[in-house]
Design a protein around this nucleic acid. Structure first.
Lengths: 207, 207
DNA sequence: GGAAAAATCCCCCGAACAAGGGATTGATTA
DNA sequence: TAATCAATCCCTTGTTCGGGGGATTTTTCC
């Protein structure tokens, strides 16, 4: 069987280096590229047509979740493995929703990584163990809505403690606009005031 | 000048591989060992007498903080660099207290890592940049205001998304009372609305 | 080019909040 | 015992927020 073409996406240089070192020791894997952000990743996907993309979930600007959605939309056959550290498990279900076939902890051993790659390439799901626990986090899952970039912007400013008029000033838009975004955020998070909004956003690592 | 003998401790194989790959590209650094836990680290410290130990802060069983204390107790001349991901900065001051001379984010580039190693080896302190900038967060730390039990109670209810009247109902007190507590919370946290309040509380782990 | 999504802007209304000022009671403790 | 602090309650004023309608214009993507 041919080797599996793999692309790795992570904003931490150390993780990229580590993955490179580990993947180079696996015969059945052919590392075709490393990307430090989603934009670069999309370019490499186009250029290298990998079979499997391993991507960090939380990255600045464009998250792994959004990246997964984009890749799946353009290349449905590419398999995606989400990677994250411990405390971000709440985002997994979203990744799965966006078409991810696997989930890896960054603490994974070489063997686990290999197994994950081969599994998803064979159209199977692969999920890191140690996921069973932590009920509260499980509950949060699926609750993380897809936010537009403007909504994220507004959300972080709200979290900073700015009022609608202040935010409007900063963004050079009408207070009405900010209010619209704010209302959309409340709707998307299914909460009915700022407190609930910020608490959920904080727990999901968005602020 | 002789090369600096470095030992790296981290429970994530990926990080160890990454550090190995990155350090091997730095001439002035001689990587004498990799340890995946504190016990193994102590053995290697004894065997290899490194000049600098780079250790993850959060590890199972024995944390980097405890490891730093042990190393400093037995070998006071060894320099220690703490390493962590973003959201664990609250632990830095503890590391420094235990004798750490440097702090690195896991997102550090090869250049930053090199600078950190050479700095601490020259008896200087090295702190990752993103930290200096983000002085605001530093301030947050350790300065979690003292809340009374009633205030904590009110705070969690606010975070749940309840309004003052609703909270008053739950606690069988007047809405005026709840409002007083709320105002005291705003004052103590030095913020001027609910959003800022919840964000800080969340960051401090209070909600 | 055309559909869909995102971003923008507008209005009304009532409820909730923020900021300022107070006052009283009871428990702790110096 | 005097002082302090926590917890309670009260009032006013102005601003902001939340919920409910809309509408228009850019982007984005097929």
């Amino acid at each position: 069987m041919d080797s599996v073409k793999v692309l790795v996406v992570d904003d931490h240089p150390m993780v990229l280096e580590g993955m490179q070192a580990m993947l180079s020791q696996i015969d059945s894997v052919w590392l075709v590229g490393l990307a430090s952000n989603a934009y670069h990743a999309m370019e490499l996907v186009k250029a290298d047509t990998p079979h499997v993309v391993i991507t960090d979930i939380s990255m600045p600007e464009v998250s792994g979740i959004e990246l997964a959605a984009k890749i799946k939309a353009a290349y449905p056959t590419i398999k995606i493995i989400a990677m994250s550290t411990f405390n971000e498990r709440s985002l997994i279900s979203q990744m799965v929703q966006q078409g991810a076939s696997g989930y890896l902890l960054k603490s994974a051993s070489q063997e686990e990584i290999e197994e994950a790659i081969l599994s998803v390439n064979a159209n199977k799901l692969y999920m890191s163990l140690d996921l069973a626990l932590n009920k509260k986090e499980q509950d949060d899952m699926g609750k993380a809505p897809m936010l537009t970039s403007r909504e994220k912007e507004v959300l972080t400013l709200i979290a900073e403690g700015f009022t609608n008029p202040q935010i409007a000033n900063k963004l050079f838009v009408s207070p009405y606009t900010v209010d619209s975004h704010r209302k959309n955020l409340l709707t998307k998070f299914n909460v009915n005031n700022t407190a609930g909004l910020i608490k959920l956003a904080a727990r999901l690592g968005l602020v």
